[in-house]
């Protein structure tokens, strides 16, 4: 969980990721941010997030990102 917040802060600092619930639909993360995020998550957790996983629900908040990462591990 903490690692994910770390990665998020590297991609786009200045956001309270533990609080925010709508990272995608609220426009906090742009598509550019998302690509960087996925690249770093792939690298960090040695997973392969593909386009099929790229649904808004998977990236709305830290919890859902964590679920996705765990699923793919």
């Amino acid at each position: 969980m903490k690692e994910i917040v770390e990665v998020l802060n590297e991609v786009k600092p200045g956001v309270d990721y533990l609080k925010e619930e709508n990272l995608i639909t609220g426009g906090i993360l742009s598509s550019f941010d998302l690509v960087m995020l996925i690249a770093m998550l792939n690298d960090k957790f040695n997973i392969n997030i593909t386009v099929v996983d790229l649904v808004p629900e998977n990236f709305e908040n830290v919890k859902s990102i964590e679920n996705l990462v765990n699923k793919l591990k």
Partner: peptide, 15 residues
């Protein structure tokens, strides 16, 4: 955009 940006090639480049 997403298929290319999440492609293995692009991810490698990023790393």
């Amino acid at each position: 955009f997403y298929p290319i940006s999440l492609s293995k090639l692009n991810m490698k480049l990023n790393m």
